[in-house]
Amino acid sequence: MDRRAFVKVCAGTAIAAAWWRGQPALAASIADHPPARLVNADGSPLKAADVPTTEALVFAYPYRGVPCFLINLGARAAHPATLASPEDGDYTSPAGVGPHANLVACVAICTHQLSYPTPDYSAIRYADSASPLAGAPGRIVCCTHGSVYDPAAGAARVSGPAPNALLPVQLAWDAESDGLAATGCVGDKFFARFFDAYKSDLIDRFGPGGYHQPVGETTVAIPLSRHSAAVSTC
C-alpha cells in the first residue's frame, strides 16, 4: 500500500470511529458531503433536547453560503417521502432523528424564487402556529410569493407557486451525547444556481469564493430570530 492510500485509510478509520461519521446516507440519492457537527454560538455541542419547537435554527451546510433549517416538529414525527428536484433528480427524504424522530433539516432556500434567510431579513420561516398563508400550524412559509412546505413530509410543497420541495439535509443523532450532525444533502446543481443568483451579495458577506467553501467539522446553529434581524410573519 502506498503512503497516500495508507493515510487515506487511516483517516477513514479514524473518522468512522466518530458517531457523526457512522451513519451512511439512507437514501441513495442524498449526496455524501463531509459531515459537520452542529454547535451553539459559543462552540459547545448542540443537544437535541435544546432544539426549540417554536422556531427553526439556522445553520450553514454543506457550504458556508448555504443556509439550512433545523426544525423540531414537536409532537409530529417526520416520515420519509419520495420527492424530485428538477435539477438534482429524484430522492427520498430522510426520516426524523432524535429520541422522538421529530428533528428534521432542510435547505432554507425557497425553490420558487430563491428567497433565503440573510442577516438582515428572512421572508422564509418555520411557523409552529398557523398563519394567514400557512393555514395549518407546523409549516415552512415563504412570504415572498406564498409558498408553503410541510417539514414533516420531506418539506414537500403544500401550496403556492414553488415547483418542488425544499431540499433535504440528512441528520445524524447520537443517543449517548444527544449531539446532532449534518451528514449529507441534495442540491449541488440547485446550489450552483443559488450562488449565481446571489453572487454579489455572497461575495460581500463571505469574501470572494468564501460562500462555496465547505463548512468544516462544525457548523453553528442559531435561532432564526437571532440569525435575521427581521422575519416576516405572513
Binding site: L114, Y121, A123, C143, H145, G146, A197, A230, V231, S232
Partner: peptide, 27 residues
C-alpha cells in the same frame, strides 16, 4: 387570502417579493 392588517413585516416582505420577480426574470 388577504392580510389587511398593515405591518412592517409585510413591508419588508414586499421588497423581497419584487426581488424574487427580478431574480426569476434576469437570473
Amino acid at each position: 387570502k388577504v392580510d389587511n392588517k398593515r405591518s412592517e413585516a409585510n413591508g419588508t416582505a414586499y421588497l423581497e417579493w419584487a426581488r424574487g420577480l427580478y431574480r426569476d426574470m434576469f437570473k
